Amino acid sequence: MAETTGIKVASNLPIISIAPWLNGADAPGRLSTAAALHAACLEFGFFYLDISSFVDPEEPEELAKLAREFFSLPQEEKDKIWLGHQDHARGYARLKENVTNGKADNHEAIDLYRPVEQPDKTKPLWGENQWPTLPQFREKYEVWIHKMKVLGMAVMEAMSVGLGMRPDEWDQLRTQVDDSFWVMRIIGYPPLPNDEDGFSCGAHKDYGCLTFLWADPTRNALQVFLPEPFVAVENPGHAPVEEGIERGAWISADPISGCVVCNIGEMWEIWTQGLYKSTLHRVIHRGSNYRFVSIPFFFEPNFNAVVAPLPAAKRLQQDDSQKKPAGTYSPTVYGDFLLKKVGGNFAQGKGKYD
């Protein structure tokens, strides 16, 4: 990272191998990985995770192929699993059905959540997942879900070490995420018209714990907002001051083979009392390919987890070399927080991130 007239310059987001935390407790490199995660969360809230030792690169490519098959079906076929048939959260969301910041998002998606006991589609988030009937669709995606849950626990443990948590403190935090109320979206983005002033997905922060995003090789679609003092070297002429957003620069987080893009959600802001920040991001797809596919997996706390500032974060903030708390962070029951965000949002005509 270079210095230019007092401004830190970020040429790209960090790439961190998570292999040491997936290869057993005696694997070398665990401490350096934990330190790298801590630094990335302090500075960016976004980074690449190298998972090439954990996932065959052909596996997510097969998932994208299946997604394109589904999105290419006639509308009436896709509508058979429309989210309105369940709890208005689980199932197929039509093109422009979701809204962010008052504008329709130019994408369609399948939304899946952790299965619940005694499902009831009249209760927000408590319905049943709806799967396409395409051969092997559900089977292959369920394998991916399992791997992302394993990845989530590994990253959480590594982050606990990076934050300076004691083993007993990690044991306590683990009980808040060991039955993750995960979410997965399978998203198809047709190109935006050149005169379109909307977004494929508008600027927002993720509100959970960790997001693992695999995307096809489309470039310049996913964009991450870096507030000053960070400016992107590869895009220095595009640092707009947007209404309601602080001064800074949007940089592209293009896919890297063997990696997923990872970002932290708002629960990490509470856990760290503002030491880590959830970062704004958006999607603007104007490419020539008909449909850009991305598969974000959201590794979230348990539904009933009480998320509160961690003692390790408080200890760090007593050190003058660390940031001071940016505000008051009250304990939050994750399920209640989630329900306020997405419970029945489509039925009410609201957006997921409004």
Score class of each variant (00 low, 15 high):
241 V>W: 08
168 D>A: 13
288 S>R: 14
71 F>C: 11
235 N>K: 12
142 E>I: 05
14 P>M: 07
304 N>S: 15
276 Y>N: 10
353 Y>M: 09
117 E>R: 14
130 Q>D: 05
14 P>W: 07
156 M>V: 15
251 I>Q: 05
84 G>A: 11
105 D>P: 10
22 L>G: 06
265 G>C: 08
301 P>D: 06
105 D>A: 12
52 S>V: 06
32 S>W: 01
267 M>G: 02
156 M>G: 07
282 R>Q: 15
348 Q>E: 13
202 G>E: 12
88 H>A: 14
254 D>P: 08
267 M>S: 03
57 P>T: 10
307 V>D: 00
36 A>C: 05
340 K>R: 15
196 E>P: 05
350 K>Q: 13
190 P>Q: 11
269 E>N: 08
38 H>N: 15
339 L>T: 10
233 V>Q: 15
95 L>A: 09
242 E>N: 07
187 I>Y: 05
27 A>F: 05
111 D>A: 10
109 A>P: 06
157 E>V: 03
208 G>L: 01
110 I>P: 06
274 G>T: 12
167 P>E: 05
189 Y>I: 11
21 W>T: 07
213 L>F: 02
254 D>I: 12
159 M>V: 09
43 E>S: 12
157 E>N: 12
167 P>F: 01
149 K>H: 13
225 F>W: 03
165 M>G: 00
269 E>G: 04
69 E>I: 07
84 G>V: 03
150 V>D: 13
31 L>S: 14
288 S>I: 09
278 S>A: 15
300 E>T: 02
250 W>M: 00
68 R>W: 08
325 P>G: 13
235 N>V: 06
85 H>Y: 14
19 A>W: 03
200 S>H: 05
299 F>N: 03
265 G>I: 01
46 F>M: 00
308 A>S: 10
211 T>C: 01
337 F>M: 12
15 I>V: 15
187 I>K: 00
13 L>C: 06
97 E>L: 10
128 E>P: 02
97 E>H: 09
189 Y>S: 13
324 K>M: 10
159 M>C: 11
230 F>M: 06
288 S>V: 13
246 E>Y: 00
273 Q>G: 11
244 G>S: 11
75 Q>W: 00
28 P>L: 07
309 P>Q: 01
191 P>I: 02
251 I>F: 02
75 Q>F: 01
129 N>L: 04
320 D>T: 13
140 K>M: 03
146 H>N: 15
122 T>F: 06
346 F>S: 06
49 L>K: 07
16 I>R: 15
193 P>H: 03
322 Q>W: 14
147 K>W: 08
228 E>V: 13
163 L>C: 15
182 W>F: 04
300 E>I: 01
226 L>W: 14
139 E>M: 04
108 E>M: 12
274 G>E: 02
337 F>Q: 14
350 K>V: 03
179 D>F: 04
105 D>T: 06
275 L>I: 10
302 N>K: 04
332 T>M: 09
279 T>G: 14
